[in-house]
Amino acid sequence: MRAPQEFPLDGLPERVTIYEVGPRDGLQNEAAIVPVEVKAELVARLAAAGLTTIEATSFVHPKWVPQLADAEELLATMDRAPGVRYPVLVPNERGLSRALALGVTDIAIFGSATETFARRNLNRTVAESMEMFAPVVARARDSGVAVRAYLSMCFGDPWEGPVPVGQVVAAGVRLLDLGCHRLSLGDTIGVGTPGHVTALLAAFAAAGVGPERLAVHFHDTYGQALVNTLAALRGGVTEVDASAGGIGGCPYARSATGNLATEDLVWMLSGLGVETGVDLPSLAATSAWLAGRLGRPSPSRVVQALSAAAAETKE
């Protein structure tokens, strides 16, 4: 089968926006540095497959993420398709200046719900990181740039253990109050379950933050990324982060395995009758191509299945 049969369920959105993070969150965790021309082709292929939001790169200092040290070169050379947004990650005002110089129209900042990860990832406390983000968000918005916020360790932390829901909500509300238009809730180490997702969304709603201001970012460490996504969709969330081929992780939390694979997400949503605008065969072919460039099989179950079916057809 090349596509799932369609059996819609009640209570789901008609359309979901996929926030593609493969070129940034995926490639930043690769041991080998991927050539800039391969990155540019990946971005172009993803846009051609119908993805309309593609996080292209990061302006973190090259010392900390050498895999993305070619951010300026990539943005200066890659094609930008009409109607496609290409956000970049920025940690501070210096990163913002680099991004603005290249005409970036969308950025993302990245906070933490826990103190330990804030220290390891940003070398600051949670409160200090909020102080660092405030002028970044203000300046970006003054420049007409949309700002999204990631919040890491929303479900569990490898050093601190379970993270209280109230602690996550407090950190998330602070990021939104800075002026971010959307908050992506990250299950950085993949320990969340559907009930936990539902409880977290309910807690945000009680704090005055509806699902229209939230996105979800699941890692598949324990095989829960798709069921957690379904729980989020039932809770009204309509934006889901995913990585082509399921590549990625987190350089600062080694227990964080691959992201939710975009192909696996599209297969599920297609079967549910939820629109994404993504051409699954084209996307799967792109991830198979990328796996060849990375020298290993794609972690995505859908990519594996479609590649095997294509190989059988040729025999």
Score class of each variant (00 low, 15 high):
R148D: 13
A44C: 10
V191H: 03
V209I: 15
K39H: 11
R182F: 01
A205P: 05
A253F: 07
L294K: 01
T229S: 12
L51R: 07
T238A: 15
V104I: 14
A199I: 04
P135W: 05
A207Y: 14
F133A: 02
G22L: 10
L102E: 15
I33W: 00
V303H: 02
R301V: 14
P66E: 14
A311G: 05
A202I: 01
P87R: 10
L96M: 15
G26E: 15
E160C: 01
A134D: 05
K39F: 04
S282F: 00
A199L: 09
V126Q: 13
L42W: 00
E37S: 09
S97Y: 03
L46S: 10
V168H: 03
V84E: 09
Y86C: 07
V266W: 12
T257K: 01
G50T: 03
R2Q: 11
E275H: 15
D25M: 10
R85S: 14
Y19M: 06
A32W: 07
A113E: 02
V34Q: 02
G236N: 03
W267H: 15
A48W: 04
Y222W: 14
E212L: 00
L185K: 02
L176T: 08
F117K: 12
A81D: 14
S152W: 01
A44D: 13
A225Q: 08
W159S: 02
L27A: 01
A215P: 00
P297C: 03
V237Y: 10
S112D: 14
I54Q: 01
E128H: 01
V145Y: 06
I54H: 04
N121K: 09
A149E: 05
K314M: 12
G223D: 08
E55P: 03
